[in-house]
Structures are given as structure tokens and as C-alpha cells.
Write a protein that binds this DNA or RNA. Structure first.
Lengths: 340, 340
DNA sequence: CTGAAAGCGCTTACAG
DNA sequence: CTGAAAGCGCTTACAG
């Protein structure tokens, strides 16, 4: 059975109406009589006709696709966000076209050009560093961009993050209240705003408590590098009594090293806290104290901004930082009076 | 700055050539003189022109998009597969359009119709149950389909899986060699071929060793349900000495219940084995003995089949089951003579 | 409400 | 190698 593509012309012929009439039946809000619509639907069903979205895009200038640029899915915050983003957009009649990009910026540039070639109606960049010029170029091309889980100083760019500064501060207050004095920090990739904001909030919180970082290592948001960072930090005699690891993904690696390699108890010997509250953080093997970064709320804001800007090209950019609660679990000593 | 869309006509005018010439410069293999190409490229650069992929698709009948249907990314095998699939396709000039689908089959049907509307060049369905008629309908529409990590009895459908029967058998041999006698199984979703094949291979392996399942519960590939299944199975007096949990994702939940809630040691009191070898399986907190299901190899085969069928519409369907090694770790007692 | 016509931005025989 | 013309499958003023 060789398949022959069914077009609106075929349907029009069979239904005995014009091609325009067929089109109107599939255009919400267009004026067609119920009688005509019925004839068209019947013919369409008999022929197995479905409108060609690509041909429609050419006319309407709307592809109903959103480009998503993402660099790695190993941090389980991203699969969760991707799933929710895709679902939310699907509910609005949009679909996600994926572009994997390495962190290097010329790679991102090439990838973005490709995205624009597909005439996407909007772009979400997650866990990717993008120059302001590049983002501005997309906006100029009429394609709204939302930075997801990254912010940039450029006021023209929309960005959705959690309130990383506030989150870092909460963790500092929590550890200080727990009586810890020697406190370490294992940083994420220094190019990321999430890394910088979490650290600055954490440092500010420590400072307010009369404390300062006693040790700092860099884990680049990478599981393997975080293990190495933990070894460097905790093999020293003056090892910290507590450590904030810049995201949960790295915190799991750090806990594994502390317990498995160095024979340290968590939280008996070392309190560990993370950031994100990805699913494994609540698994008993880790039971990690962390700050919740709500994929749900971040996705909802992202979709909101995107749809606004698609509907109204001069809608102003928005910068959202969503506050998330501290989730107290057993990986860190719980101060008196804090509910576990 | 209001953006005006730059078309091939604009470039043609500025370069002083025909629209056809512009098109040929961007069509690999078309015949253009170097002189013309240079003029066109110069004009294009000055205007910021890039070909509209959608308009091209309308003519060529190729969108260079592959639709991916996936139902959940909580099992970390899927984000890994998605990342690799997207990278592999990108390298071939294709991009992935994502469709999230619930397991219910009429939902899958609606989603597939949408996919076809986007004129994708091929479809990959992962972790999704699809009726044979539905898949056949896509093939008939000229769109090749590859079932990823699911197989179906229908010979007309291409499918890529690991060799789940062989994997199940290896785990049975391993546990039997370890001297275990009372052996349990926690099943995945019964509608999945992976579940059925892993179980039948496991049962066959036990039988060959003169053993049979002593307990069986269903976890539906769900973290929460797996925890409940573990509670039911291990609160009994005649609890198994070893258990095969149908995938790693559930095995983590089972280990958490055994150690955290029931105070059982792994592998001291119970040996646990899983299937997939997702990243957390090698994290020390679990260190799970499992069978490797290679996302790399499965993706490579999937892309291979897809490109073949796109290039040659009458290419026969292929059914691939990739054998993966048993990965011995500390979550299960290691028999004499088996390398850990 | 309806149809004929123009056109979205490209590619591709065809003729030169 | 190059250009004029037709056409991919739709939508959308326009006129009736």
C-alpha cells in the first residue's frame, strides 16, 4: 500500500466545497456554517486528512514549536524540568524541539542559528551560558528567549530562576544555628549565575552569623569532580564540620566519599546540605537537607513569559526569582527548635 | 529595531543573481560556480539571511525532525537515552521534537496524530505502549517508527531493546551460584515487554538451576509502588534471601526500604540485583549489581534503522536485542570465582 | 457564509 | 552553470 498524501484540495473536492472552506474548518474562530463543516469533516475522516502544520506555519508565521537548548541531563533537575515544560507547552498547543549544546559558547551560537532556522516561536535555554549579544540577536529576530535556571545582568533578557541568594542564605543560617563553626563550600561551575548567587547568599548568611568559609573547593556541578573536591576538602586535619554543596547532584557524590571512602558519619561527623531537592534527595540513602527549587513553578513562569511575548512582541522582559523553602532532613544536624 | 524577515529573494537582489542561484548555494550537491556562491554568501552575511527550514520542508517532503514519544523521565535510563539520541541525530542534521504521552493508549493515539501533523521524518517511541495498528498507520503514512526499549510481536515493526531474556537469565545464574534458595522477583509494569522478557529469562534461569520464584510482587516501574512491594515481600517470615527487582530505579527504592525501614543488611541479609545500570547504580550508597543496558548502543542502532528507512522507504523493519554484561557490585553476595 | 486568487519562502525540473 | 516558472500545502484578505 503506497501512501498518497491527502491535502486540503482532496478534501475540498470530495466534500464539494472550496479549499478555503476546508481551511476554515480547521481554523479556530473562522466562520463556517455547521453544514459545511460537517461535509468537510466527513470527507476528511474518509480520506484520513490532517492539516500540514508546516505549511500552515509558512503563512501564519507561527510554527507552534519552542526550541529548548540544554547541555546535560545528568543533574536530575533537568529531566524533571524538561518533562514539565513539555507537558505545559503541549497543553497550550506547543511542542518542544530539543537542541543539545556543549557549554562552549561558539557551540551555543551554532546551535542557536539552527534553532532559528526551524522558525521556532520561542527559545528556552537551560543550563547553558549564552552571551547577551546572542540572546539579543534572537529577540531582534522576533523570537523571545527565556533563560531558565540562569540569569544574566542584561535587563533586556527574561530569566527564571529560584531565589538562589535567599536559598544560600537560608542554608547558612541553618548551619550556623546548628552550632557549626568550620564550614566549607563546594562550588559549582563558576560561569553559572546559580553558582555565584548561591555562594554569595551563603557567604552573606555566614557573615551575619559572625562566620566565614573555612574551606572552598570547586566541583563544577560534575559528579566526578565533586568527589575529588570532597577528598581534597575532607582529608585535611582541619576539615569542616559542615559543608554546603552547590547542588544536590554533587552533594550525593560528596556524601558517598565521606561515608564510603573516608569513613565519616553524616551528620555525626559532617553535616551536608545541598540545593535543588531533586528526587534522590528524599531517598533514605541520602535524605539530604536542601533548598527546594520548584520545577513546577519555574516552568509555569517560563511558559507564562513565553506566551506573553509571543502574543505581544513588545511585552517587556521579566526576571523572576522564586523563593523556595529549606527542606530539613537527616543529612545535617538539626538545630534546637527547627522542625525536621 | 523592528526586524524584517530576510528571504532568498532579498539575497538574490542584493547579490544580483536569481533566487534559484541562492537556493543552490544552500543545497549540498547543487551546481553553482564559486563566483556566484561567493556573491551570494556575501549578500547573505550582510543581510543576516538563513534559509527557512520549514519552507524547504514543504518542497522536499523532509522536515529533518524526528518525533520522540516518551512517557516519563523518572527512570534515569531515559534522560540518558534522550540526551544521546538527540546528540546522535543532531550529528546527522536531524532534531528531536518531544511529545510526552501518558501510558493510556488513546492518549498515545492523539499524540501520534499531532506528531504526524508536524511532518516528522521518523518516530521513536520510548517507554510507551503503542498498538500495532497505530504503528502500522504511521508506517503507511510513510513515517518510519522505531520502538525503543519496547518490543512487540508484530514483525512489521522495528524495535531496539537490550536482550532482556538473556539479562534475566544471567541474574538468575548469578543468584543461584551465590547459594540463594528463596528468591523473589519484583515486577515492572506488566504491559511492558521489558518486564515480561526480564521475568521469563529470570524464571528460565532459575529453573535450570533447579529453583523457582519463592515470592513475586508488582512495582509497575514506579518508585513508590516498589517500596510498597518491598514491604509486602520482606515483612513475611519466609522472606527471600535474594531479590531481582525489574529495573534499577525500583531497586533503589527496595534497598531503601530493606535498610532504612526493615533494618536488613544488603547483601548480608538480602542480596539485591537490578537491571539497566543507570548512573546511581554505581554510586556507593547503592553499589547495585545489575545488567548493563547500553543507551549508547541502543541509540546507535535506533538512528541507524531510522536513517535507513528514511533513505529507503522499503527498507525492511529490524528487531535488535543487544546483549549486555552482568555488572557485579556489592549489593548481592558474590559467588566464589566471580570477579567483583 | 463562501469561493477565487494571491502568496508564505523555498526547491526543482526545464530550457538555454 | 544559470534563470524563469511552477508548485509544495496551506491561510487570508477581498468581493460577493
Amino acid at each position: 500500500m503506497t501512501h498518497v498524501k491527502v491535502t486540503s484540495v482532496d478534501v475540498a473536492k470530495r466534500a464539494g466545497v472550496s479549499q478555503s472552506a476546508v481551511s476554515r474548518v480547521y481554523t479556530p474562530g473562522a466562520s463556517v456554517s455547521e453544514k459545511t463543516a460537517a461535509k468537510v469533516r466527513k470527507a476528511a475522516a474518509e480520506l484520513g486528512y490532517r492539516p500540514n502544520v508546516l505549511a500552515r506555519s509558512l503563512i501564519t508565521g507561527r510554527s507552534r514549536m519552542i526550541g529548548l537548548v540544554v547541555s546535560y541531563l545528568e543533574n536530575y533537575f533537568y529531566p524533571e524540568a524538561l518533562e514539565k515544560l513539555s507537558n505545559a507547552l503541549q497543553a497550550e498547543g506547543y511542542h518542544v524541539l530539543i537542541f543539545m549544546a556543549q557549554q562552549t559558547s561558539d557551540n551555543v551560537e551554532a546551535v542557536l542559528e539552527e534553532i532559528l532556522d526551524y522558525q521556532v516561536d520561542g527559545i528556552v535555554t537551560a543550563s547553558v551560558a549564552m552571551s547577551s549579544e546572542l540572546a539579543a540577536r534572537c529577540q531582534a529576530a522576533g523570537t523571545p528567549v527565556v533563560l531558565f535556571n540562569r540569569s544574566q545582568d542584561d535587563e533586556r533578557l527574561s530569566a527564571v530562576t529560584s531565589d538562589n541568594v535567599a536559598g544560600g542564605r537560608k542554608l547558612a543560617e541553618f548551619l550556623a544555628a546548628g552550632g557549626h563553626r568550620r564550614i566549607g563550600y563546594i562550588a559549582g561551575w563558576e560561569g553559572a549565575s546559580t553558582q555565584r548567587d548561591r555562594e554569595s547568599g551563603f557567604r552573606a548568611g555566614l557573615k551575619d552569623a559572625g562566620l566565614a568559609l573555612s574551606a572552598r573547593e570547586v566541583g563544577d556541578f560534575d559528579h566526578g569532580k565533586a568527589r575529588e573536591a570532597a577528598r581534597r576538602m575532607f582529608r585535611r586535619d582541619d576539615r569542616p564540620e559542615a559543608v554546603f554543596v552547590a547542588n544536590d547532584h554533587m552533594a550525593f557524590a560528596v556524601m558517598d566519599v565521606l561515608r564510603g571512602e573516608l569513613g565519616l558519619r553524616v551528620p555525626g561527623d559532617v553535616s551536608v546540605v545541598g540545593y535543588d531537592d531533586v528526587p534522590p534527595a528524599s531517598w533514605p540513602a541520602y535524605d539530604l537537607t536542601t533548598v527546594r527549587q520548584s520545577a513546577n513553578r519555574m516552568v509555569a513562569e517560563t511558559v507564562d513569559i513565553l506566551l506573553d511575548q509571543i502574543a505581544d512582541r513588545i511585552a517587556p522582559p521579566r526576571r523572576i526569582a522564586i523563593d523556595g523553602p529549606l527542606i530539613v532532613r537527616s543529612s545535617a544536624r538539626v538545630p534546637e527548635g527547627w522542625a525536621a
